[in-house]
Computed example of a mutant assay.
Amino acid sequence: MKFLRTAVAALALATAIIIAPQAEASQGVGVVEYNLGDQAFHDPTVSVPMELAAVVHYPRDLGGRPHPLIVQEHGSWWSCVDPVAKTPGGDWPCPPGQRPLPSYRGYDYLGEKLAERGFVVVSISANAINAHLLGDEGYYSRAHLVNKHLELWRDLARGQGPLAATLGRFRGHVDLGRVGTMGHSRGGKGVMWQASDKHTPEWPDGVRIRAVVPLAPVYFNSTEDDNSDVLVTRVPFKVVIATCDGAVGTVGLQYVTDVQGKNRDASSVVMQGANHNFYNTEWSPGKIGGEDDAPADCVGKMTPARQRGDAVREIVSFFASRLR
């Protein structure tokens, strides 16, 4: 797949970049967003252009050392909202009168806690994929989108590329040899695809994935007996699943089953009473389109706050132990 890296690296990016500083998440943690445009990424293997937008949580005091990088990727949800009618929509780019639904901001609580532990955390937007791409194209596009952001951050760490002019504070402060990924729902399969033995050659030069967390991930293969696109035997990973998940259930355990005897550092944790949507604050009740997906008869249902707190504990401890 060397051709893919070469072709993607040669793509021209939009020249305009929007950096929108946000209020500090907490003492010691900074937040910034970048956006290169709704159709900035033209992957030659994907039928539609994708946005290059993300929010970054980072230690305000970057010190004199490089920090591990974590990339988060959300799953399939609405792509736009009408703030007047208070209804969600599924187009991309968003039509007049609608604005992007910021699924990538739904993990701010996790990004903040990871940044407090010294990580630079980039949560990326995948609304174009949600609006237009299904099947395998929807999964490898998620993997390629992760790789594109990693390419941007590799260049930024060297003081190069389209992010350098406005995010120069990160030059020399990000270690692309210590990278973790977290994907929720369809994003969970996306990061497993990106980390798989088969697709390791597509990683940008200078990047090494050392830990992966599929969070409430989907699991199915287009060819029933061929799981090679998501078979991860050389990278540690931890699957987090939920007993009240009304969207995908506990199928993500299959990722661990697939590598028994092949990956010594593949594990899982079952969160009793957790559902699917509460992991993302933008998918939860109170937000346009948000809902509680847990079955009505599910026993021991968690509150959103407790579910996110338990997820933080599991995910932060895993990344802290694998990326140090």
Results as ranks from 00 to 15, higher is better:
H199R: 12
C80V: 05
L134M: 10
F278P: 03
K238D: 03
I124L: 10
D310E: 14
N277E: 13
L133E: 01
E51Q: 15
D245T: 12
G118E: 09
S268G: 04
P83R: 10
L4M: 08
G187W: 10
G37L: 05
E116W: 03
Q72S: 07
A164I: 06
G168I: 00
G252F: 07
W78Y: 14
G188A: 05
E73F: 02
H42F: 11
W283A: 13
K189S: 15
P102A: 05
P102W: 03
D82K: 05
F220D: 06
T6G: 09
P44F: 10
P93D: 07
S268L: 15
N275M: 05
P66I: 01
V120P: 13
G187C: 12
V174A: 15
V248N: 08
V31H: 00
V8Y: 03
W283P: 00
K189G: 15
E112C: 01
T181M: 14
G252D: 06
G300A: 12
V81R: 01
A9E: 08
I19Y: 08
M192G: 04
G188I: 02
I124T: 08
A14F: 02
V239M: 08
L36T: 12
N35V: 02
L101T: 00
D43E: 11
N35Y: 13
P217I: 00
K262G: 02
N221Y: 04
K2L: 15
L253A: 12
R117E: 15
A131S: 05
R308Y: 12
N130I: 01
S141M: 10
G106I: 02
V84H: 05
W153L: 10
I129D: 06
L156Y: 00
L167V: 14
G273Y: 08
E137N: 03
T243Q: 05
D61C: 08
L11C: 05
R60T: 10
K238W: 06
W77T: 12
R65N: 12
V213F: 01
A9C: 00
Q39N: 13
A23E: 09
P217G: 00
K113P: 01
R5N: 14
T15G: 12
A85Y: 00
G309E: 09
G273I: 09
V230K: 01
R186H: 11
S79I: 08
Q272K: 14
T181A: 12
R60P: 00
V270Y: 00
R178Q: 07
S79D: 07
P201S: 02
R158Y: 01
I17K: 03
S141D: 10
S268N: 13
R178A: 10
I241L: 13
H199C: 09
P95W: 08
D155T: 01
E282V: 11
I129P: 02
R105H: 11
G300R: 09
R324V: 04
A23G: 02
R158D: 09
A53K: 15
F119V: 03
I315Q: 04
F319N: 02
S317G: 04
A25F: 00
